[in-house]
Design a protein around this nucleic acid. Structure first.
Lengths: 228, 228
DNA sequence: CCGAAGCAAGAACACTGTTCTCGCAGCGTT
DNA sequence: AACGCTGCGAGAACAGTGTTCTTGCTTCGG
C-alpha cells in the first residue's frame, strides 16, 4: 500500500474539515444549514465546496452516515466494556451509551432519528449502522440463552409472526418470535424516550431525566425477560 | 354577538385557504415549504401573504397549532365513541385514532412530533392540545379505578417519584405514582412506534404494521394494568 | 360622500444552492 | 526541462427564497 499523494491527503483533510464546520452549523441551524455560511467560516468561496461534495444533499448525506457510524460505535464500545455474562449490565450500557451520544449530539441525532428530509432517500451505507443498535440488543438476549426468564403471555397474530420469523431467518438467528418481538418493543421504546428527551418534550415535565430513562429501559429489560 | 363584517369573513376564509394550500405543500416539501410557491398556487403575489401571516414562521406555527388540535380532536372523538366501562376498547380506540391520523397526515405529524424547527419555540397555545393524548390515556386508567390489575413491581427512585407526584398534584389527579409511570411508558411508546412507522423506519422490516401497532399498544395496556 | 383602513401588486434587498468559466498551482511524462 | 493534464479556488451569473416598502385601489364606517 503506497503512501497517499499529498493532493489526496489534503483533499481528505479538507473534506473532514468541511464536515466538521457543517456539524457546528448543524447544531444551530438544524438541517437547513447554509453551504455559503460554512464556506464563509472556512474563508472559502461557496463554489469551492463543490470540489468535495457534489451538492448540499450530498454533504448532508455524509453527515448522516457519519452520525450513524458514530452512534453505532459508541453503542458497540459500551457493550464491549461489560463482562459478557452481565446481561443487564450490557443492556443498560448500550442504552445509556445511545442516550449519552444523543444528548451530546442532538442535531446529528435529529438528523437520523427525526423527520426524514423531504426528497431524500436513505443511502444503502446507512442501513447496516442503522441496524447496529437493535442487533446489539438482540445479541445480548441471544447470549443470555437459557437463562432468559419466561415471557408473560401475549399472543402474536399470524402475519406479524411471519415478519418476525423472516427477520430471524435473514440473520440466521436462534430466537423465538416472541423474544424478538420484545426486543423490538424495547428498541422502539429506546428511541421513543430519546426522541421525547432530545426534542425537548420532557422539558417541563420530568426533571429526573436520567432516572426516567434508566427506569424505562429497566422495564424494557424486564419485558424481554433479561435475567436479573 | 353581531355578525362579522364581510371584510372579516373573507379575511378569515383567506387565512384558511392559505393554510390549506400550505398544508398541501407540506406534504411534498416538508417543513421547508416556500411562501412564494403557495402564493403562486393562489394566484397571489408573495408579499400579499404578509397581510395574513407576519412571517413564514408564523404560518408554520399556525399549521402546528392546527395539527395539534386536529390530532387531539381525533383522539377525543375516538374515545367518546366507546362505552365508558370498556377500558381496553377506549385505550385501543385512542391509540389507533392517533395512528390513523398520523398516517393520513404524515407531514403534519412530522411537524409536531419530529425534529423541532431550529430557532422555534413552541407557542403556549400548543401545550394544552399537546397534552391531550396523554390526558385521555390517563383518564381511561383513572376511570378503571379499582378494577385495575396490580402492577408488576419495579421500584421508582425518589427524584423521579417526586416528578410524578408533582404531575399528579398539578392536575389534582387521583393516581398512584406507579400507575402514572406506566401511563408515561405507554404514551412514550405510542409515539415511539408511530415515529418509526411514519418516518419509514419499519418499511422493509415489518409488513403487518397495523398488527404490529396493535400488539405493541396491547402490551402497553397490560403493562399499565388495564383490566381485560 | 369622504376619509380611513385593509388589501394586492410590484420593486427592491439580502440571501440561498448551483453552474460555468477562468486562471493558477502541482503532478507525471517524455 | 518543458509539456500537458488534472485538481483546485475565485468570481460571475442564474434562478429562487423570505421580507420590507411604496403605490395605488377597494371597501368600509361615520
Amino acid at each position: 500500500m503506497s503512501a497517499p499523494s499529498l493532493r489526496a491527503r489534503v483533499r481528505s483533510e479538507m473534506s473532514q474539515e468541511i464536515k466538521a464546520v457543517a456539524r457546528r452549523h448543524l447544531a444551530t441551524d438544524g438541517a437547513n444549514l447554509s453551504l455559503r455560511a460554512v464556506a464563509r467560516d472556512m474563508d472559502i468561496v461557496a463554489s469551492a465546496l463543490y470540489r468535495y461534495f457534489p451538492s448540499r444533499d450530498a454533504l448532508l448525506t455524509a453527515l448522516i452516515i457519519d452520525a450513524y457510524d458514530a452512534l453505532a460505535a459508541a453503542a458497540t464500545e459500551a457493550d464491549a466494556a461489560v463482562r459478557r455474562d452481565d446481561f443487564r449490565g450490557r443492556w443498560m450500557a448500550v442504552c445509556t451509551a445511545v442516550r449519552t451520544w444523543a444528548l451530546a449530539n442532538p442535531a446529528e441525532y435529529g438528523l437520523i432519528y427525526g423527520n426524514p428530509v423531504p426528497g431524500y432517500a436513505a443511502p444503502p451505507e446507512t442501513v447496516e449502522p442503522a441496524a447496529k443498535v437493535i442487533l446489539l440488543l438482540a445479541a445480548i438476549v441471544v447470549d443470555a440463552g437459557n437463562r432468559l426468564e419466561p415471557l408473560t403471555a401475549s399472543p402474536i397474530v399470524a402475519p406479524l409472526r411471519k415478519d418476525l420469523r423472516r427477520l430471524i431467518d435473514e440473520r440466521q438467528g436462534d430466537l423465538l418470535e416472541e423474544r424478538l418481538d420484545r426486543i423490538l418493543v424495547a428498541w422502539t421504546h429506546l428511541f421513543g424516550v430519546l426522541n421525547f428527551e432530545v426534542f425537548g418534550r420532557l422539558d417541563d415535565m420530568i426533571q429526573a431525566r436520567a432516572d426516567y430513562f434508566t427506569h424505562h429501559m429497566t422495564l424494557m429489560a424486564n419485558l424481554t425477560g433479561l435475567p436479573h
